[in-house]
């Protein structure tokens, strides 16, 4: 569910086909910058009722998905 939402947001932000994005895809390779990530984080916070602190370590789809899933489980 989390990864689907992230893929949807990425596809919207980058005009990339969601099927071309994998867990290993780095945001930088999609041309996603820090403000794009902040926009995405705010949308994920709203969607899943969590508070997400973005950090440079959350630089791939998989790492972000894992972090959000952990927050959702703790909520």
């Amino acid at each position: 569910m989390v990864q689907e939402k992230i893929l949807e947001l990425l596809a919207e932000a980058t005009d990339t086909d969601a099927s071309e994005i994998t867990a290993e895809t780095a945001f930088a390779d999609l041309g996603i910058d820090s403000l794009d990530l902040t926009e995405m984080a705010m949308q994920l916070e709203e969607e899943f009722s969590i508070t997400l602190e973005m950090s440079p370590e959350l630089n791939t789809v998989g790492k972000l998905t894992e972090a959000v899933e952990k927050l959702v489980a703790e909520a």
Partner: peptide
């Protein structure tokens, strides 16, 4: 701090 400023401003 760009990201924090962006988030604060939009909110």
């Amino acid at each position: 701090q760009g990201q924090e400023t962006f988030k604060y401003a939009v909110t």
